[in-house]
Nucleic acid binder design. Sequence first.
DNA 1: TTACATCTTGTTAACGTGTGCATTGTATGC
DNA 2: GCATACAATGCACACGTTAACAAGATGTAA
Lengths: 337, 337
Amino acid sequence: MSVTIKDIARMAGVSHTTVSRALNDSPLIHEDTKRKIRAIAERLDYSPNYSARSLVLARSYHIGLFFSTLSKGTSSSFFHETVKGVHSVVNTKYHLIVNGIDDYDGNYAAVTRKTFDGIIVMSQSDGDESFIRYVADKSIPLVVLNRNNEQLSPVNVLADDKAGVYRVVSHMIRQGHSRIALIEGKQSFKSSQARKGGYLQALSEHCIPTDETLHAIGGYTLEGGYAAMQRLLQLKPLPTAVFCSSDEMAVGAMKAIFQSGLTVPGDISVAGFDDDVFSAFLSPALTTVKRPVETISRIGAEKLLAVIERGFPHKETLFVDTELLIRDSVGTLHKQE
Amino acid sequence: MSVTIKDIARMAGVSHTTVSRALNDSPLIHEDTKRKIRAIAERLDYSPNYSARSLVLARSYHIGLFFSTLSKGTSSSFFHETVKGVHSVVNTKYHLIVNGIDDYDGNYAAVTRKTFDGIIVMSQSDGDESFIRYVADKSIPLVVLNRNNEQLSPVNVLADDKAGVYRVVSHMIRQGHSRIALIEGKQSFKSSQARKGGYLQALSEHCIPTDETLHAIGGYTLEGGYAAMQRLLQLKPLPTAVFCSSDEMAVGAMKAIFQSGLTVPGDISVAGFDDDVFSAFLSPALTTVKRPVETISRIGAEKLLAVIERGFPHKETLFVDTELLIRDSVGTLHKQE
DNA sequence: TTACATCTTGTTAACGTGTGCATTGTATGC
DNA sequence: GCATACAATGCACACGTTAACAAGATGTAA
């Protein structure tokens, strides 16, 4: 049996109403009374019953953080940074509940306004759309990360992937490369499409014709990047550079290149995307684009709390800048003719 | 305003008690009545108010997953695998709340039997002890992962780190190495101590004297591994092999070795611990020990649910086997004399 | 017919907290 | 000295659910 405000009330010789008010620092209560009550609460090691409070206030103190999936296709560093970012804002004020959308198997009945004060969706796939729509329909405060869909959700925060890829591919072009291959992620992922868009834009703005044979799909996994690169290594002539839509795939690609007896960046330059925690320590260190996942998550969480606590209705979409990290895996190509 | 069991009761022409029983599939209620009530509930899109239920049942439906820290010193893959493992068991039955112990700053008042039906601590440091003790004192159902302290907590699940390191270092010795350096993690982490123990045991059982100058500290970070290896590279004669207490540190160490113009495993063999997601794709692929983090987490979660639901009082400690993964970073040393 | 068991449903209270309204006591203004 | 304002506290109810107990209906055995 644990201590309630009624116990405190009895000891202090006041009503439980006064205790409730005192502990909530209501201006209605005399300072002396507050002090006395707080002292007793402290002494009895009182802690409020969240269920009771939630019931009467119609608030759950839960923030739901939903990933497309927890198990398949979510990279560890991505997951970790997201949780860190959101958690740093939510902290001890709300409980952070982590979930995979795919766990619900299409039946979202358990997701209600009462179970979640607000929801953050870290979206990675078009498959999330039904879930996002469901949450929006229930008018649960909502922030969508990593995805741009204004008509679906009011607040969106995402990295400017396209601009980031544009920057790194332009960098390759400036280093003299023109036969630049692409290893895509998962075609159904919006991020994959955006990154391809940046690649295509860089090529077209530098008047380099696109060549479909230079495009491969790696599925955002190491193994996939390895296999995709193996296919690209069959090409004649070989590409002089390859942009990989994730660092993990870049690691796989480099592995394939090394195995075929070639060097990076001597024979083939490689660039990635994400700046995974290990990327700076590869040999050669990987030139890549840093996605501010933690920043995005932090900003998203702040926006969500603003919506919940101050009612912040108007739509907005925030793009967070990426950062080009030039390291050693992209070399300069000397014109051969 | 959302629909409650009273609304359903009104529509069905029964009492709200009957509705409650029907929805909980109580044997007291006639099947026809149940069907009717379920149909109405379905039609009205009813979902129960968890706060109210929690209040009356004195259960929160929350499982707390606590890390020593979310931000500093927890590797992403470790974090991800843990959450995956626990989540796969907890699923939609309970809400999984992720927290860092360091966020509470020593004030655990918000952690009570009422806010958490059970708690899983993924322990990485001695600093967790006060928290674990607190939870145990409150007699909240508790499972501690990754840490062995029978008198503190009833149920412990952990990898047999020491045996795993013993195995990989013995492997190095069998390949002819005897001058084997060690890069430790964080000295305050129990895991770091256990791994060092395995290293020392392997040496002593093969009658190789320990040499303090061969021990360096890398703090479980890439940068730390890099710096530690730089120090080891000052030694004369050089070690012929180095065991790193984590794969991340191994990557840093390899980087330092390459920078000094040496090769792996030609000049120096390297082994790691963890089998991070990228380890198989390094060049050379890293020989390491796989810690079954996800398995540990899954088993721990199952144990916790057993305690919660079936009352499972007796103490037990489970060791989960590690797996030696022999890849390319440890070479054979030919005797020189 | 009566007594009793069984099946099904209803009545009422309880969980712990917050809040609208009433009540008491005290100071202020005229 | 009285009306009024204001500060501090208490009373009673509400939130949505579950459960102990009561109670009605129906069947059955004596």
